[in-house]
Amino acid sequence: MSPDAGTGTGTGADTDADEVVAELSGLVFEVTGRLRAQFNAAAAELGLPPAQALVLTNLSGPAPMRQLADWLSCEPSNVTGIVDGLERRGLVTRRSTPGDRRVKLVVLTEDGEDKRRQLRSSTNALARTVFELPGPDQKHLRDLLARVLAGPPAGADAESG
């Protein structure tokens, strides 16, 4: 029997689960760091700062500046400089929203679409090196990560885990 059994402070199983969760967290952060470094390198090869590259990869249609700020986890005022840089490069344009001229939409230009394709192609090629697993393992990892992101099923009891 573990020393904390029956004390309400947890059991050996709880401690093991906590260690696994800590290890999972560390591994996910390490993989994320590798992916980020590869993304930044691919962006640099295309002459883009990481923030501009993030906007390009996430912009699939006209988007308000506020949405870009949410994607980048920054203040809307910071997005102005990022979009200015993309606009100077001819990769995006700003358009007024039909219903509210104060809201500016950021839209990819043809050159922006081309640069986005190049960036996505390069980052996908690099990501293949991170996830170099047999096909079934890749799919299993994908499915597990999708389940983690989806959260627990409705009505699931955290204690029944």
Score class of each variant (00 low, 15 high):
residue 84 D to K: 05
residue 113 E to S: 08
residue 90 G to A: 00
residue 15 T to G: 09
residue 124 N to P: 07
residue 93 T to F: 00
residue 101 R to W: 03
residue 84 D to V: 06
residue 82 I to A: 00
residue 8 G to N: 01
residue 4 D to S: 10
residue 21 V to A: 12
residue 154 A to D: 14
residue 146 A to C: 10
residue 52 Q to L: 09
residue 148 V to I: 08
residue 92 V to T: 00
residue 90 G to S: 00
residue 109 T to E: 01
residue 65 M to S: 14
residue 71 W to C: 08
residue 59 L to N: 07
residue 24 L to N: 07
residue 152 P to H: 11
residue 105 L to H: 04
residue 23 E to G: 12
residue 133 L to W: 01
residue 153 P to D: 07
residue 32 T to G: 14
residue 146 A to L: 10
residue 104 K to A: 02
residue 123 T to I: 09
residue 100 D to N: 04
residue 81 G to C: 08
residue 48 L to D: 01
residue 21 V to C: 13
residue 95 R to A: 03
residue 131 F to I: 04
residue 145 L to Y: 05
residue 122 S to L: 07
residue 84 D to W: 06
residue 118 Q to A: 09
residue 54 L to R: 14
residue 4 D to E: 08
residue 24 L to C: 12
residue 11 T to R: 05
residue 13 A to M: 10
residue 78 N to L: 13
residue 34 R to A: 02
residue 94 R to L: 00
residue 109 T to Q: 02
residue 24 L to E: 07
residue 16 D to M: 14
residue 105 L to C: 01
residue 91 L to Y: 00
residue 122 S to E: 08
residue 88 R to S: 03
residue 75 E to Y: 10
residue 33 G to S: 01
residue 47 G to A: 05
residue 81 G to Q: 09
residue 156 A to V: 08
residue 128 R to W: 10
residue 124 N to T: 15
residue 139 K to D: 12
residue 151 G to K: 04
residue 102 R to F: 01
residue 41 A to F: 05
residue 160 S to P: 08
residue 150 A to D: 08
residue 66 R to W: 14
residue 54 L to Q: 15
residue 122 S to W: 05
residue 108 L to M: 05
residue 74 C to V: 14
residue 130 V to M: 03
residue 143 D to P: 01
residue 66 R to C: 15
residue 57 T to Y: 15
residue 79 V to E: 01
residue 3 P to Q: 05
residue 126 L to A: 15
residue 40 N to Y: 07
residue 61 G to V: 11
residue 64 P to M: 15
residue 159 E to V: 12
residue 132 E to T: 08
residue 117 R to Y: 08
residue 30 E to H: 09
residue 57 T to E: 14
residue 3 P to R: 02
residue 5 A to K: 04
residue 1 M to W: 02
residue 92 V to I: 00
residue 121 S to N: 11
residue 149 L to F: 09
residue 73 S to D: 15
residue 32 T to S: 09
residue 17 A to E: 11
residue 141 L to T: 03
residue 126 L to M: 12
residue 58 N to V: 13
residue 8 G to P: 00
residue 20 V to F: 11
residue 132 E to Y: 08
residue 133 L to M: 03
residue 135 G to Q: 13
residue 127 A to D: 02
residue 19 E to M: 14
